[in-house]
Design a binder for these strands. Structure first.
Lengths: 135, 135
DNA sequence: AATTTGTTGTTGCAAAATGCAAGAACCAAA
DNA sequence: TTTGGTTCTTGCATTTTGCAACAACAAATT
């Protein structure tokens, strides 16, 4: 019943978000201003609703996300990044940069071009602007 | 039968190495000087042999790794990184840094401390030293 | 020559995770 | 009281993973 396979930090990280969906939810929050279940569900990769619930539950349990009632709509929940979640930003950016570099079918958009030009600056700027939203 | 879920570079990357094992094999090569099937099999996380074969096959098909007969031992295979595989280094380092930061049970070793102190320098140095081994 | 050792797999079966489709629960607004 | 939006559940089929045993092959050893 051990949670982690080893005490290697890479292994422990993968035990948490090493799957095909978790980082896409994080991406939606960080880069696409999505915050709710229905918005995540609508993303182009078409995650199944039961998987989405499961991942949100895990990410919340891991204190990567925080779930709250929407201030604007009382019958809606919004998910926010914690500092721990925000600290995934460099990982997300590096993965995006690698994916864009090695996939013809992945055209770099504005942010992709900025990353290619000055990755550190993009991380710094995005981190700064997301900082005001963390919980 | 589409290979990728979308044309998002993050999604495309996760379609390739978004699982609990692929990046551990890459870690073994990058940071632990492991190069062969039996060495990967012996790692502390205890990957199953059929999964290992499957992941090595995928990583080779994706041109992240190259499989060759060992020069030193003709009945042995060695796996080497390609440039594409080496370019995963920043991702691996960022994941290691995050994992060490948020897991009590993951003591930072020498490399972990160097990463905390100067991440960019570690990536640069390691990248430089691994460059001579790529195929 | 026969046996052992090292290395790289394969196979069958059980267990777990994922994917899919339908719909339920809940609340708010009309 | 009906409609629509949002979140979540359920049942079932499919796929992936995990586990354990063992097979194939070559080199080294006896």
């Amino acid at each position: 019943m051990e949670k982690f396979r080893s005490d290697c930090p890479i292994s422990c990280s993968l035990d948490v978000f090493g799957d095909k969906w978790s980082l896409l939810i994080i991406r939606d929050i960080m880069l696409r201003d999505k915050v709710s279940y229905s918005e995540f569900l609508g993303s182009e990769e078409k995650i199944a609703s039961n998987i989405l619930v499961n991942r949100l539950t895990v990410l919340e349990a891991e204190k990567i996300l925080v779930k709250e009632v929407s201030p604007a709509n009382k019958s809606k929940f919004v998910y926010s990044l914690t500092q721990k979640g925000l600290d995934l930003l460099p990982i997300v950016i590096e993965i995006m940069d690698w994916g864009a570099k090695y996939n013809e079918n992945c055209p770099r958009k504005e942010i992709g071009k900025k990353i290619k030009k000055d990755k550190a600056a993009v991380i710094k700027e995005l981190s700064q602007s997301l900082k005001s939203k963390i919980r």
